[in-house]
């Protein structure tokens, strides 16, 4: 019976990994703002997850385990680009890809502006913001995924939202302006 239960467990976990593809891509896109890179990171994460599936002890932690793998793939990507840099510096750096299709085509003005604003955040803040806001991970889960203290999650999130608010204030102001004005 162990063979049977092992088989069904593997099948179920593999299906859950496949189903997580879009979520991983969404977060990878919010970190990189480059669809090709986001797709590569997603594929790399899924490949690693499928290969290392036997190492997953608790199936309940599959989602956060997958996002930890994505985090490592993202870090590896930057290590390969800038091998001499410290990872802490990397998390405080700002990576904005130039002239990607994301910059050229936006679904709407607001979507485009928010994505641009997120892309202007330092990477460490961007990661925390998107894990909490997009994927609704708790602070504790985000801390475990990114391998940082929970206090750092809170401070980065706080700074991220403050900066985002500043970046978007023009848009919000524009949206709240009355469309008709009376001229006396």
């Amino acid at each position: 019976m162990q063979v049977l239960s092992h088989f069904f467990r593997q099948r179920e976990l593999t299906a859950r990994i496949e189903a997580s593809r879009q979520r991983l891509y969404r977060v990878a896109l919010s970190w990189s703002h480059d669809p090709s890179l986001a797709d590569d990171l997603t594929q790399e994460s899924l490949t690693k997850a499928l290969k290392k599936l036997a190492q997953l002890k608790d199936p309940a932690t599959l989602e956060s385990w997958l996002f930890s793998i994505l985090t490592n793939c993202w870090r590896d990507h930057f290590r390969a680009l800038r091998p001499a840099e410290d990872i802490a510096d990397f998390e405080e750096s700002i990576f904005i890809p130039e002239d990607t299709p994301e910059h050229i085509h936006g679904n709407s003005q607001m979507v485009q502006r928010v994505r641009e604003a997120v892309a202007r955040l330092p990477i460490g803040q961007r990661q925390v913001l998107t894990l909490v806001d997009l994927e609704e991970f708790s602070y504790g889960e985000a801390a475990a995924i990114l391998d940082i203290p929970i206090g750092t999650v809170m401070s980065r999130l706080c700074r991220a939202r403050q900066q985002l608010k500043d970046y978007l204030s023009d848009l919000q102001h524009h949206r709240t302006e009355p469309r008709l004005r009376r001229v006396k």
């Binding site: 928010v114 994505r115 998107t130 806001d133 939202r161 608010k165 978007l168």
Partner: peptide
């Protein structure tokens, strides 16, 4: 309210992001 609005805006901005190819 502002924090809640920001959260919603971020979620909305990536809600329809899909991988280039689907299984």
């Amino acid at each position: 309210c502002e924090i809640g609005a920001l959260k919603s805006m971020v979620r909305h901005a990536y809600a329809h992001a899909t991988p280039p190819q689907h299984m």
